[in-house]
């Protein structure tokens, strides 16, 4: 076994903050080192969950599209949502997942805008499903580290 990536990044951040940064005489460079340490902590937090977060988000978006599509009045948008709902992730590489993420979230924006233009309680209820997904997206991406 070897040290896991998050532990390694956290250790590097600690070394940078506790051992290296205090020995940097230049104030600008010292503060930049602290920012780099912060980024290492963020990367540590993100690394372990990166694939899971994307896969979970895609599943949530596909469920949303499958549920809402039958009630979308625009036929072209409905067909694209149905197609997206049937989709599968192309692999587990983050770069591949990000391409799929962009496709699905682009469609979410279109759906949201479409629903906002529709009158009636049914459209409002569907719109609330979109807001719920936006809340979930923000929570999935939340990072514990705060720099200010």
């Amino acid at each position: 076994m070897k040290p896991q990536v998050p532990r390694t990044l956290q250790g590097l951040a600690g070394t940078l903050l506790a051992e290296l940064a205090p020995r940097i005489a230049d104030d600008y460079a010292q503060k930049n080192a602290a920012v780099v340490a912060g980024l290492l902590l963020v990367a540590a937090e993100e690394w372990d969950r990166a694939a899971e977060r994307r896969v979970a988000e895609h599943a949530a978006l596909r469920r949303l599209f499958a549920e809402v599509a039958p009630r979308v009045e625009s036929a072209p948008l409905r067909e694209r949502m149905e197609e997206a709902a049937r989709g599968r992730d192309p692999g587990l590489r983050i770069s591949l997942l990000d391409q799929e993420n962009a496709r699905l979230r682009g469609l979410l924006i279109e759906l949201h805008e479409h629903l906002e233009g529709q009158p009636g309680d049914a459209a409002r209820a569907l719109e609330e499903r979109v807001w719920a997904e936006l809340r979930a997206e923000v929570e999935r991406r939340a990072i514990g580290f705060w720099p200010l």
């Binding site: 930049n32 780099v36 807001w131 936006l134 923000v138």
Partner: peptide, 19 residues
């Protein structure tokens, strides 16, 4: 690196504030 940090951290908090 500050530009990367705001993209990673601050933008996410700002999204929450927007909601």
């Amino acid at each position: 690196p500050t530009l990367a940090l705001v993209g990673w951290v601050i933008k996410g908090v700002q999204d929450r504030i927007a909601l």
